[in-house]
Design a protein around this nucleic acid. Structure first.
Lengths: 298, 298
DNA sequence: TTAGTTGATGATCTGAGATCATGGAGAGGT
DNA sequence: ACCTCTCCATGATCTCAGATCATCAACTAA
């Protein structure tokens, strides 16, 4: 049915509905009131129903007209939005979603570097721990905590997850700990800092100890627990205890000595942080550049 | 930006993308290949980017072109769909969602009557007990088991829920029951027929007895349980035991004597079946007629 | 090499859509 | 009640964005 209707008629109809005034609609569209009237009349003929009622100079939408108006408005909004990438200057906005931990501890710095390299691209970082928001296809790119497979995203490994207890030098000194030689059961007796597990696969201290070849017999009772992983890391940096370090996320802190590994047991979980690009659509130029930048930042 | 682009250009672009051939696109649209070429060229100029690459007679979409093509296709599909209500004959399809019980026991008969009165309207009845499907705004009308409030639907009470034990005359005779005088504890000792509670608010026998002023001490152990309420009613009609009758839903069966109330305790639950019309959009003419018909059928 | 098909383009055409002018219908002010 | 103003509808007429025509270049298939 649409093939027999000039699409411009919808634009005219939309303007007429917004103003409820053919003269003003015509002024917006730079055509005369008579042209608007003709267009509406033509549309009504094609559709076989009245879209407006007229009484003297008063216009009102019929119920059919009202419903169509809503959908036509939505259509034009959607199409207008589709043209955003073609706007002048080519300033492009990319959205990327990542969990709180990877956002705070790794991605924010990478984005800063990227911004310096690509000033014409805006990046919108969605920081969330909700799996559905993380993997939403509304994003141009995502960073997912995963084994590497996802039905809608092509994933490339950024960093494997390796978990190792870490503490600040100050904490280590206060507790007279030999970082290289400390045994798991000794670690279990220290002040442990845990974090919320938003994902059933996440591993916090109980799971970490359980997976050791020789798990300590004592019950694992962390003294502190934070709502986010990066808050837990912050607490460890302040010397408040031992947290589980994901080596890739705290690489800088380990390199600088602000955090020190305890013991020699790094647990590989089989998970990791993966950069995802959409499986069924192409990347915008800016998103492609960000994708490459993040891979290079490993 | 859209205001500077003739909307017909998108229709031409869409056809060109679907065929990847300007000549065939032109044949579909009843214009010449040259006209298609002009349109695409004009669109590319307006957008400031190439949408197709050309090599000899071979066309390919650029990444920008591909993305735009997907959205333009979606736009045209949506608009085409918006015109469905205006198709010839005016045969309108309404969708109404209701739970299994109200569908089978009340609504089906009402729809039959409606169909006789409004042969030009098709009704699609979605029978489901899933709350999210029931209240989905994809429906034109809904029947909800509710207290009467809903954020997205304007609800009108069809029938209050009053629950009373009922059995067939045959069952009553076989068990020498005085229907008017039978006490709750005596009812509790009969063969009870229960049903699945898909909604936490639903009341089956345990809840019914618990709400009596003098609940029987014995444990309520129904002998039969069915997956749907109407199956439970069918079993009671066959004389297999006592079920809880929602008076409004089995009005015909009570009136005809096919089911008989046991005892004098009708429990008003505070819930009821409500006819819902959308809060934020208008009804189609056919849906408005069905709405009126169902209210009249109380 | 030839034939066929497709896209691009200069020159030219054309009719859907526009304007102009006017009349009817209401609303608001006096 | 009358006048003024604004808006929509419409007959008559105009017009230019979009169409066609004709031709050329570039490729593919036989």
């Amino acid at each position: 049915m649409l093939d027999r209707i000039p699409l411009e008629a919808f634009r005219v109809f939309d303007a007429a509905c917004r103003y409820m005034n053919f003269s003003r609609a015509g002024r917006e569209l730079h055509i005369t009131q008579a042209a608007v009237s003709r267009r509406i009349q033509g549309l009504e003929e094609q559709l076989g129903t009245k879209l407006f009622t007229r009484r003297g100079r008063n216009l009102a939408l019929t119920p059919e007209g009202d419903r169509l108006a809503q959908r036509v408005r939505a259509t034009l909004d959607y199409l207008e939005e589709s043209l955003e990438p073609f706007r002048g200057e080519g300033r492009e906005t990319i959205s990327i979603a990542a969990s709180g931990s990877v956002s705070h501890l790794w991605l924010a710095k990478q984005l800063k570097d990227f911004d310096n390299e690509s000033p014409s691209v805006s990046v919108r970082l969605l920081t969330t721990d909700a799996p559905s928001e993380l993997a939403s296809e509304a994003n141009d790119l995502v960073i997912l905590y995963s084994t590497g497979e996802h039905p809608r995203w092509n994933l490339t490994l950024l960093m494997k997850e390796e978990l190792v207890p870490v503490a600040s030098p100050g904490f280590i000194e206060r507790h007279r700990i030999d970082p290289a030689a400390v045994a798991p059961h000794e670690i279990a007796g220290l002040d442990l800092i845990d974090y919320e597990r938003f994902n059933a696969h996440w591993i916090s201290f109980r799971q970490w100890f359980a997976r050791l070849p020789d798990p300590p017999k004592a019950r694992i009772t962390p003294r502190l627990s934070f709502s986010t992983y990066s808050l837990a890391v912050d607490a460890a940096l302040r010397g408040e205890g031992v947290t589980l370090g994901s080596v890739g996320l705290i690489a800088d802190e380990l390199a600088s000595g602000a955090l020190v590994e305890l013991g020699s047991r790094r647990l590989e979980t089989g998970y990791g942080y993966h950069l995802g690009m959409p499986r069924y659509r192409s990347l915008t130029p800016g998103a492609a550049r960000l994708h490459q930048h993040l891979l290079a930042g490993i």
